[in-house]
Amino acid sequence: MAGAFKGFGQKAIPFLKALDFHQSREWFQENRDLYQSELHEPFCDLVETLTERFEAAKLGLRGDRKRSMFRINRDVRFSKDKRPYNRHLSAILSPDGTKMEQGVFYVHIGLERCFAGVAWWQPTPELLQAMRKAIATKPAAFRGMVSSLKKAGLELDAEDRLKRAPRGFEDVGDEDLAQAVRSRHFVVRHDIDPATIHSPALVDDLVDFTLGAKPLLDWGRAIQGTAVAA
């Protein structure tokens, strides 16, 4: 397979550490070739290798080396933090290959941590409302999804939930459902051992994780269809 992922270079994380220390455009330009060979090009290969594997697994997620990657440059226009570079590199694979879709796979290689996620992140108000309604009115389907995730060793992220029930859902009594309708996002995460990013076996690890997270994708897609139809 042309462009198959062979692993990130051994200097990928050291490069990020050095870039974080210097935070200098001059330093980055002087070391751009190292960035390309150790980090950026392998990441592009990872995206395209995952796209082929996800297609074979019928996961409905794809990307490419142009549209999927987030820039390492930070947008500092509206930030007090004027450091020009991120401490990580990341990418999204989605149903249409863009970053604008919902029900996506995200992968993040950085200094603090390396991880992947499958997410319905910041869904539109209409979709979020439909998801909350589905939780309240079709609890068996929601609980079945949660149970399937648990069998795969995954659980929905509880961070960033509303402190109170959203309007219209105050009467949801069961604790698991009451917690769920307060969610702003529906996300499962998978920590990547930084020692494994230098091996092509990382692909298998990420495919296994995404297959385990498929119940979340399927649940959201079924609701998304009704939200669009409505």
Rank of each mutant, 00 (worst) to 15 (best):
N31A: 01
A18V: 02
G212A: 14
V181T: 05
R32Y: 12
W120L: 15
E126N: 10
L149E: 08
L16T: 06
E175F: 09
L39V: 10
K80M: 04
A116I: 04
D20A: 14
Q179V: 13
L93G: 08
A4W: 11
E175V: 12
L39E: 05
D205K: 14
A229L: 06
G3Q: 13
M131L: 14
A18L: 05
A195M: 10
V146I: 10
T137W: 13
F209S: 01
F8W: 07
R143I: 04
D64N: 15
F15K: 05
K80L: 13
R189K: 14
V203S: 06
N31M: 04
I223P: 02
Q29R: 15
L16K: 10
L216H: 03
D193G: 07
P95L: 09
A119D: 05
L19Q: 05
F15N: 08
E126R: 15
E159P: 00
L149T: 11
P125N: 11
P123C: 09
N73K: 04
R143V: 00
L50V: 10
R53M: 05
C44I: 03
G168F: 01
V181D: 06
S90D: 10
K82E: 06
G153E: 03
G110W: 03
T124D: 11
R182D: 06
N31E: 03
G220S: 07
F54L: 07
Q129P: 01
G110E: 08
F43M: 15
A158Q: 13
